[in-house]
């Protein structure tokens, strides 16, 4: 009987112990999860984007017990990497993370983090990523799937697009709040104050406002900018020029009539300006008060400008527009 009771006690003890152990394991697990979340929250309080390195990335993003989603931007922001896209992406990402950090819905369900290549190269190698920037979502449960890598080639990396993608993946809708861009307003204010200051300084001599050349130059500048396709550049953002990777030859002129390079539009602007200059010279040659020799030279130079630069423009057009049959002076 005694042995029996002893045994009972023993079993009970063991059971208790094991129970204790199990619960402590459970507790430890809870603790680590809680600690992790706490740690992340702490970091997040300091900065809206959590900077991770290889160590912390493994600990907080890849190890399993998680009850939070992490969106990670894998990027290369170091100066020597020369990744200008990364910097733009970083700006947009910061806007999004800030919107989340200071939104009404802010909770510990979602964290925004980033890994810089120079701080955690093995993260890149582990995820088999060799480009930057990449946006990845690590869900609460399971491994990232196909859609958990954002397709920035297609949708771009505007904060709104990232927010939409995050909303799709996590069902957390973030309303992007862009800090109002004061730079434009500031530049405008600066410009106006400069103009105002200038006017004030020259208040005794305001002749230049009535200077027609000044206003004419301004009007022509706007017109040249528009007719040479600067607005297209602004909206589409083409490269400055194209360098052929095989031959190393630099193309300033886009081959098709559907596109253009930035350098090309400047060339066209100059050509337009030169033709206009030629016309003005032609007209001024007749009206200036000078001897006939000077007049002749001026008018001939004007004509040369018009004819030469116009035919140059025509031949650039001809090279872009397949099958255009006409040319002037030279092909």
């Amino acid at each position: 009987m005694a042995t029996y009771s002893n045994m009972m006690l023993c079993t009970a003890f063991i059971m208790l112990l094991s129970l204790c152990f199990v619960s402590s394991v459970q507790k430890k697990k809870d603790d680590t999860l809680g600690e992790k979340v706490q740690q992340l929250m702490d970091w997040n309080n300091k900065k809206s984007i959590i900077r991770l390195n290889s160590e912390t990335f493994r600990q907080y993003v890849r190890t399993v017990p998680r009850n939070y989603s992490v969106v990670v931007m894998l990027t290369a922001l170091q100066q020597q990497r020369q990744c200008s896209v990364c910097r733009q992406a970083n700006d947009e990402y910061t806007i999004l993370a800030n919107s989340w950090r200071y939104s009404q819905l802010y909770s510990n369900r979602l964290f925004f983090a980033m890994v810089d290549y120079d701080e955690g190269p093995d993260v890149f190698s582990h995820l088999k990523i060799n480009t930057a920037p990449v946006f990845m979502h690590f869900p609460e449960k399971g491994k990232p799937k196909k859609g958990d890598t954002m397709d920035i080639n297609r949708v771009g990396f505007a904060a709104e697009q990232i927010a939409r993608w995050v909303g799709e993946r996590t069902d957390i809708q973030i309303r992007v709040f862009r800090p109002p861009n004061y730079s434009g307003t500031l530049a405008l204010a600066l410009l106006f104050s400069m103009i105002g200051g200038l006017l004030y300084l020259k208040r005794n001599n305001l002749e230049f406002i009535y200077n027609k050349t000044f206003w004419g130059m301004g009007a022509l500048a706007v017109i040249f900018a528009m007719t040479s396709g600067q607005m297209w550049n602004h909206i589409r953002g083409p490269p400055l020029m194209h360098k052929n990777p095989h031959t190393g030859q630099i193309h300033y002129i886009h081959g098709s009539s559907q596109g253009q390079f930035v350098a090309e539009t400047y060339i066209v602007m100059l050509l337009n300006g030169a033709v206009v200059g030629g016309f003005v010279m032609l007209n001024e040659a007749c009206s200036i008060k000078s001897d006939s020799g000077k007049k002749r030279v001026l008018s001939l130079v004007g004509l040369a400008f018009v004819a030469f630069f116009f035919s140059l423009l025509l031949s650039i057009f001809r090279s872009k527009y397949q099958g255009y049959p006409y040319s002037f002076l030279f092909k």
Partner: peptide
């Protein structure tokens, strides 16, 4: 938006 080519195409010397 409009490229300079279509300006030139539509207006030629006038532009």
């Amino acid at each position: 938006p409009t490229t300079w080519v279509s300006f030139f195409f539509d207006l030629h010397i006038l532009i």
